[in-house]
Design a protein around this nucleic acid. Structure first.
Lengths: 355, 355
DNA sequence: TAGAAAAATGTGCTCGAACACACTAATTTT
DNA sequence: AAAATTAGTGTGTTCGAGCACATTTTTCTA
């Protein structure tokens, strides 16, 4: 009745020496077989393979990495958090990776660029290329430039991983991020829960509108939900706000739309809307936005923001570099796409996510 | 304008040999200083400390663990998933840990017990004690028995970690789980969003009612939310259901409470209520439950369950053993309490959490 | 068949920490 | 003062994989 599963069969760790002994050859020969280095007689090959078929040998990764004096260099190309605090958690995620892989010979460097300037992006890439690292983790904010620069990296045989922004291009082999379409749908499902009906605005706020694809995907997902559910009591409108005089433009928008009852902000700038909205005290408008940055959480706690969707940039950045390091150190495959869960945050569970 | 932070100062890894050379002594002497093994002259001690103050030496953990032939044994005491599929993800989490620490000499064993029988719990503990492992990860389902057995482990100097159920006892030094009170609040906040008013039932379903404290904490949190918000349009009632004839008892309850509009199920048995509820097709009752087990997700997709709270057992179990392994291998401290985030799941984001 | 070339195999060192052991120098004991 | 402790220091081995190099065996050629 009482089952006890013991994973004892996984215990016995065979070494090359063990295999050599069992096959009656030297460890050098075993090594040649394991690495297909040739210069092995058919007889020896067969004996060793016989042993390898019986036991399941897994090399001791610790010993392997102890020996290797090779230093792996990974560069991260990150928008400067000074321009947008959205990127701040990424630094922590990368720091975690630095700590984790310090023992192995992995050097990780962060290079910041100005997210509003393609020039800065390109220039920083040149700095990185000059360092000739083994791999690069990119934040591909600029589509065209990213595709071009990745070609360069390919030629130089520098491995590239991307995160945060999904760029459709055959040259991009791996990506860590979220399904933005689905995250739009999540937002919509929550909005539908807060509101029985009414007019909903989808607001895109971004200094440089370089997140265009990013934001559009979220809008597409958001709209798809309402279309699919066929909810006639809702109407959706889109509003794009640029950096200059957001306040006044938004105020005008609210005046023009007296029936407005919900707002979905596709970027991390929900706090700007919440702040403006606090002027219209009579209005009761549902707000859903992105990211657990300080100001957003503050408005969440005040009850002005109802839900935030957590994009988990910290983990994105961490996974971006750690998959690269794991690839070099432990020969693990780099997953084509890692899609992180779309965390739903409200005032009651927010504290567990802020890091 | 363009900042480039290079973590180069973290690169240079000093070895004991380096320190010995710099201090003009042998590596043996350095080793004695580092480990306070004594037998070092004041002169040598000072020279070495001078060097250690300048550089920051961190021992290469890889090399350290390569040398040590010590095999660490960690036993996990887990309720048999055959009795309750809730525990199934834990096995995966532990398997992950097994894979991760296989390279180091860490042996992890899972021992299953019958969650409905304290005898089984005690008996399995005896089996584990007989193996004299270095550490144990417990699922402390039974309060009294747990406290007693932990005393035994303490005497035997076997390290104990707990997960899933928080047991208040000074003898328990570490715990991985969730804040159940707050998870009740999260559920309440979601319920409040779905329903404008009405009667809400808090239903405790558990075969053995051994989760009593567990469930009560959730109820306490749930109620606290409604009390705090002072919402007079709601009324809360509690219902306890045991294994036998849940269906009929619940049907009677529904008949007796025509105004019932929401149900909060404090265990992973939401599917049982959802299943019963599908008989009352005219009723539109909001359902919030726990855990992404298959049947629950199925009802979530059907729209009969509105929200599930993810307790992330897999990660709980993984962290439970990995903190122990990290302690032995890398001398990391075992955190007193690790509280995992309370993930809110609806039909739109569920797919990203099921593992 | 000797001798050269090639193929096959084995040996030995490295990585860094840990620790046993050997050794020297400074005291203490007889 | 010689012997015996003890304090202090250094040397050498181990862990497992990886690889350079040395050595042995086989095959081929003159």
């Amino acid at each position: 009745m009482l089952k006890v599963f013991i994973f004892a069969h996984m215990d016995k760790k065979y070494t090359i020496k063990d295999i050599a002994q069992m096959a009656g050859v030297s460890k050098g020969t075993v090594d040649r077989v394991l690495h297909n280095r040739g210069k092995v007689s058919p007889a020896a090959l067969e004996k060793i393979n016989e042993v390898l078929n019986v036991i399941d040998y897994e090399p001791n990764l610790i010993a392997r990495n102890l020996k290797s004096t090779k230093v792996y260099r990974i560069c991260v190309l990150l928008p400067d958090p000074a321009f947008d605090p959205y990127w701040l958690p990424c630094v922590n995620g990368i720091q975690d990776a630095i700590t984790e892989f310090k023992a192995y010979n992995v050097v990780i460097e962060i290079h910041y660029f100005n997210p509003e300037s393609t020039k800065s992006f390109l220039k920083t890439n040149e700095t990185i290329i000059a360092q000739s690292p083994d791999a690069v983790l990119l934040t591909p904010l600029f589509h065209k430039e990213t595709v071009e620069i990745i070609k360069r990296y390919d030629e130089l045989e520098i491995m590239v991983n991307t995160f945060n922004n999904q760029v459709e291009s055959s040259s991009i082999k791996s990506f860590v991020g979220q399904d933005l379409y689905k995250s739009g749908r999540v937002a919509a499902s929550l909005m539908n829960l807060i509101l029985p009906k009414g007019q909903i605005a989808i607001i895109h706020i971004d200094e440089s509108l370089k997140n265009a694809v990013h934001m559009q995907e979220k809008e597409r997902g958001f709209r798809s939900y309402f279309e699919e559910k066929n909810l006639p009591d809702f109407s959706l409108i889109t509003l794009k706000l640029k950096y200059s005089n957001i306040e006044t433009k938004f105020a005008a928008f609210v005046d023009e739309h007296p029936d407005l009852s919900g707002i979905f902000i596709t970027t991390s700038k929900a706090y700007q809307i919440a702040s403006s909205l606090s002027n219209f005290e009579d209005k009761k408008i549902a707000l859903i936005g992105y990211d657990l940055i300080e100001k957003n959480v503050s408005f969440l706690n005040q009850g002005l923001v109802h839900f935030l969707i957590h994009q988990n940039q910290k983990r994105q950045a961490y996974l971006g570099v750690s998959t690269l390091a794991d690839h070099f150190l432990f020969r693990k495959d780099i997953p084509e796409t890692i899609l992180l869960p779309i965390d739903i945050i409200n005032v009651e569970n927010a504290s567990f996510y802020v890091s």
